[in-house]
Nucleic acid binder design. Structure first.
Lengths: 145, 145
DNA sequence: CATGATTTAATCGTGTGCGATTTAATTTAG
DNA sequence: CTAAATTAAATCGCACACGATTAAATCATG
């Protein structure tokens, strides 16, 4: 427990907790997502499309805070699985529209129970959830490129 | 903003905030870590070694919540850069000891200023930090395999 | 003391993340 | 109207994460 530089102590590093907690949450989701055959980032992208179908790669990227170098391969995998379609915008061929297929839309029903199950797994009270949200929002507000 | 299933709304998903915030923090670290030529996970591993030099891969893994399939390549990169050494434990040749080199020890001084700079960047009050820590600790307490 | 179980790292394969660059299409300026 | 600048997506390269397996060493049990 003794250490030369207390500033560097891992237990004091909020960053490490955040990094661990984020991966922990992904792990908690895994058994639920495995049933529908999705990875966690794929699930995030589908959440975005279930909110609003027919978005551009760029729009999905802004929502998920991911760039095309991550999204393009991910979306191609979703397309291969028949959950979305990728089509050029005829009015601006630089853009690619992502649309849900019927299978992609249907999958939303299968995922409807996930949030409630996750809330139970996370073991946080509503109050704690609210506090956590607030803190994370402050963090996210920094460095809005 | 309207949506069929409010349960799935991304804004309500604490998971998404956590996932975004974690990557946001990594991005905030990057300019600082770039100066010392480290990635964020490499920095985490060095923090662990600066706390206690000469640990087994397994021990580092327990601290960082990472397995050998992630750690082995990462540690090999740190070894190639001359920051650590990897050596078999002669008393139990299944185990590999990781020791800091002089360069690895010296690097701690160069990193001493990072936490304070990060605190400033994060823009959280001490109170918010404490609340965030508590919430994350509750999350981490779930599913201790 | 021999053999099966366990432990520890390493390895393999897949899927992110992300900096950097490329390509193609569109917009802007001169 | 055309060349330069900008934009959107794709591509490339590298470094994680992690499930699954493998290989080697040690332990446990009969």
């Amino acid at each position: 427990m003794s250490q030369s530089n207390p500033q560097l102590n891992l237990d004091n590093q909020i960053c490490f907790r955040l990094y661990s907690a984020s991966r922990q949450v992904t792990r908690l989701y895994q058994p639920l997502l495995k049933e529908v055959g999705l990875t966690y980032p794929q699930y995030i992208v589908l959440l975005i499309l279930w909110e609003q179908d027919g978005q551009l790669v760029k729009e999905i990227g802004e929502r998920a805070e991911l760039n095309s170098n991550t999204l393009t391969p991910l979306l191609k995998r979703l397309a291969e699985r028949g959950l979305v379609t990728r089509s050029k915008n005829p009015d601006d061929e630089r853009q690619t529209f992502i649309h849900l297929t019927q299978a992609g839309k249907t999958l939303e029903q299968s995922c409807a129970c996930i949030p409630a199950q996750m809330m139970a797994k996370a073991g946080l009270s509503m109050e704690q959830i609210q506090l956590l949200k607030q803190s994370l929002d402050v963090l996210m507000a920094q460095g809005q490129r």
